[in-house]
């Protein structure tokens, strides 16, 4: 059974249809990427899945509809979103941001343990744990956003352009982290501009265009698809 199943998802802003009837299916443990040009509707799709936008269509998570679940209940069900532009709490300290990620949990010793684990994954965050998060560099903020999402112990992690605006070295580091998280069994839906890296890292991929899914399949195959190579890999 798939962990997430989306049927006929439609989202509009006022009169503008940004997502037009897309279907998605993600099995437990998969790393799936969603690529496409600017304005294709990727962020809109993720926001609709996280219930931040009103949407039409069916969304099943673990076989149950979450179309009516309030936003704050999703994280308790195991869904975490790292939003586009990171969305960290700039005036909270780094550690407070991480603790906010664990807001839905009550198991204090395990939260402590996960905090330490995060600091091992991102030593930079440990060095700056008392610093105001707004003063971190862009890359550090991205680490914080991912670390914070992990603090909820998600089953399904939705990542919106985690590599945006980062230097190549940092991009590699972020992708390495995504692979690590995936290897630990977390199911991931990754939205990316960097199609090459995303296809290389993921098992399967969906390609969006103008609010619809125009192509989908195994990432390894798409990576060699001439159409994809031309449109998204710039060849």
């Amino acid at each position: 059974m798939s962990l997430l199943e989306v049927r006929g998802l439609n989202v509009s802003y006022g009169g503008i249809k940004a997502v037009r009837g897309i279907d998605l299916e993600i099995a437990a443990g998969e790393l799936v990427c969603l690529i496409g040009a600017n304005g294709a509707g990727k962020t809109t799709t993720l926001k609709a899945l996280a219930r931040l936008l009103p949407a039409h269509g069916k969304i099943f998570y673990q076989g149950k509809s979450i179309a009516q679940t309030p936003v704050f209940d999703l994280v308790r069900k195991g869904i975490a979103l790292v939003p586009e532009g990171r969305g960290i709490f700039g005036r909270l300290s780094v550690e407070e941001n991480l603790l906010m990620g664990a807001y839905s949990r009550k198991d204090t010793p395990a939260i402590r343990h996960d905090l330490e684990k995060n600091y091992q994954l991102f030593p930079r965050l440990f060095e700056r744990k008392t610093q105001q998060a707004g003063t971190l560099s862009g890359g550090e903020q991205q680490m914080l956003a991912i670390g914070r999402a992990l603090m909820s112990r998600p089953r399904l992690l939705l990542l919106d352009e985690p590599s945006m605006g980062l230097a190549p070295l940092m991009v590699n580091k972020i992708f390495e982290t995504i692979r690590t998280i995936s290897a630990e069994g977390v199911t991931i839906l990754l939205v990316e501009q960097n199609a090459k890296l995303a296809l290389e890292a993921s098992h399967r991929a969906y390609v969006m265009e103008g609010g619809t899914v125009c192509l989908s399949g195994e990432s390894a195959k798409l990576l060699h698809d001439p159409q994809v190579r031309h449109a998204y890999l710039g060849e």
Partner: peptide, 24 residues
Amino acid sequence: TRIGRAMRATAQAPEIAGLMGVNV
């Protein structure tokens, strides 16, 4: 406190606080 942290987070970014599980 936890609720105090939630208050500050909500003051800064209510939508994100909601994503963290805060009932805004």
